[in-house]
Design a protein around this nucleic acid. Structure first.
Lengths: 344, 344
DNA sequence: CTTGACAACTAAAACGTTTTTGGGTATAAT
DNA sequence: ATTATACCCAAAAACGTTTTAGTTGTCAAG
């Protein structure tokens, strides 16, 4: 039923190999033949069978992406933008994107094996590198092409794109200091994430540079990137004997939850209490008050990841295999100048 | 390098066909042989080549999904949840999910052709049915298995899952009426979407039922589902000579933008002006004031779509091929009782 | 002793490509 | 007239499975 290369050959009285070569622009095919074949193929509505082609060429022209969803809620717009940028670049390059969503960390390994060992994809994009990342170990051991979003110091040398989290947090914390906040808390990412450490370092060094000591009680983190978790974390900080008057929250989604907790206490955001988020999701600009946030160039990250991986897959050399992109602080009202103390 | 069925056969001194049959539980294989083969396969780390298998069986065990992104921003959490639910169900059923993101409506057709004619997937999930939907025409013509999220009256008979938008809007508008709002606007979806019509009907009938006439000036719509568009639409309504005192906005993301426009005018949300959104994204509960919204059972929608499609692909009969799920109104503060008039 | 039935396995074709090798026919060079 | 050189095309193998159609061996029934 579907039209194959053989049908075209029969139609034209040519051999299969000639047709194949014509379609693939081999040099030893007469220009007119090539023309004729392509014309006929189009007329007959021919499309190469992906399976047959990849069986023969050992290439799938597909890249794999696995999202491991904890808690059944992956509603962070950040991921959707990442996905969109990767997907778009894939399309441009004629690649497909095979996506797997696994609801449980324990199923993650088998999801990778399915894609990699089942030869379903040519390469993988890995997001959110973790300490002692089993996925990296696996891919390195297999010698399978991959790039990652996020560094991983000790796990071997592989191409990655990362955002300079320390720099981002530095800008954010410094901004809070400049606005007059003196007791600045930190709501970090799940500690297993490599980038969580970088961001904390940014917090630490900027406090020191600003002459503010680090109070460990003001440092907390969320185990998942949800509003609820951000709300809880901020609750914890506000219940301290000496609560903070500002906080740097490592994800906007978490920051929105944190804002809720602050406002619930009757504190005026951007006056009594300052918050800086991370990611600069679209919602950040719309919420009341608008949320100051450290913008990640997420579209560029996704695009670069995709381009790098495709180069690796095709065996081309990478101009740079370790890319660190700079975030930019977007100042809005949630970090307005500090106006009064906690006790009022 | 990768271990194939032939390697296993050689290792055990069996034929390829025996190994294949053993792995696939054919009855004419001795139980002990089957056992031995499976054991050995596992030990050697065997994984069937997806390409070879699907070349032979004409099945890919993959379903396709194409997101057409307008405006480079697909940050609606709704889609991420939909994607997550579809992805999870795929995993459970041992299917892969091939995702294509096309930045331009003009590239949509070729994205479909790539998946369908290139035999990359066994079936497609189509989202957001449109009037005179070219995708449906194409798939029907090809006789290709698909299910859709959303009805389509005239385009032929195919399985779908839909949410009862008329019912949802009905509940929302009735709620606004009950809260004392008397001049209720409507911010609809892009009119090309089939569901846009259903929702508008819900608006219309509920107004009539409530004895409120329909003022066409209070009816507007957005061309894309962004906050910005919602903001603009609401601006338009508020600039009328006789502006509304409430509005039903057909997507939460748009509703958040609309809330911004309302608040910018100095109106108190949930007192001077009521808003009901649609989708009940997580953000709705967190924003200030929390947004009343019509919840779509999006996880169930995704799961059902996936299950139905897989049944169709496998040639099993569908218990019900036209599923309409009910939304539920989640009441929050953005639709608090009407307290004062526009002029103050 | 043949026949048939059954169980357990194998041979081989097929799926639709790509690619290597090689063959034939012009044209050009010796 | 012979040889070399392009040029164009065809044959065939290969990729790793699945599946149809046997083949072998054993055992029971006739």
């Amino acid at each position: 039923m579907p039209v194959t290369i053989k049908n075209i050959a029969a139609e034209l009285g040519l051999s299969v190999s000639t047709v194949s070569k014509a379609l693939n622009d081999y040099p030893d095919i007469a220009p007119q033949t090539r023309q004729l074949v392509k014309e006929t193929a189009r007329r007959m509505g021919y499309r190469a069978s992906a399976a047959a082609r990849s069986l023969r060429t050992r290439r799938t022209n597909t890249i794999g992406l696995i999202f491991c969803i904890i808690d059944r809620h992956l509603t962070d717009p950040y991921y959707l933008d990442l996905l969109a940028s990767i997907g778009e670049e894939c399309s441009r390059q004629g690649f497909d994107l095979l996506l797997s969503v696994c609801p449980d960390r324990r199923l993650e390994r088998s999801a990778y094996e399915r894609m990699v060992d089942g030869k379903r994809v040519d390469g993988m994009i890995l997001t959110g590198t973790r300490h002692g990342d089993g996925r990296i170990a696996y891919l390195v051991e297999r010698g399978f092409p991959f790039v990652s979003l996020g560094r991983s110091e000790r796990d071997g040398d592989f191409p990655y794109v990362d955002v300079d989290g320390a720099k981002g947090i530095n800008d954010g914390v410094q901004h809070l200091i400049d606005q007059g906040y003196g007791r600045i808390g930190f709501v970090g990412l799940p500690p297993e994430l490599v980038c969580a450490g970088h961001r904390f370092q940014g917090y630490q060094t900027t406090l020191e540079k600003g002459g503010l000591g680090l109070d460990p009680r003001l440092v907390t983190h969320c185990d998942c990137l949800t509003q609820e978790a951000g709300y809880q974390a901020m609750q914890g900080l506000l219940e301290l004997d000496e609560p903070p008057d500002a906080a740097c929250v490592c994800s906007d989604v978490m920051a929105l939850g944190a804002m809720g907790a602050v406002q619930e206490r009757g504190l005026a955001m951007g006056r009594d209490f300052g918050i800086v988020g991370f990611d600069d999701i679209p919602m950040a600009a719309q919420v009341q008050p608008p949320l100051t946030s450290i913008r990640q160039p997420i579209y560029e990250v996704g695009t670069r990841l995709c381009r790098m991986l495709i180069k690796v897959v095709e065996g081309e050399p990478l101009a740079e295999s370790h890319v660190i992109l700079g975030p930019t602080l977007v100042i809005r009202e949630s970090s307005g100048p500090y106006q009064r103390g906690w006790a009022r």
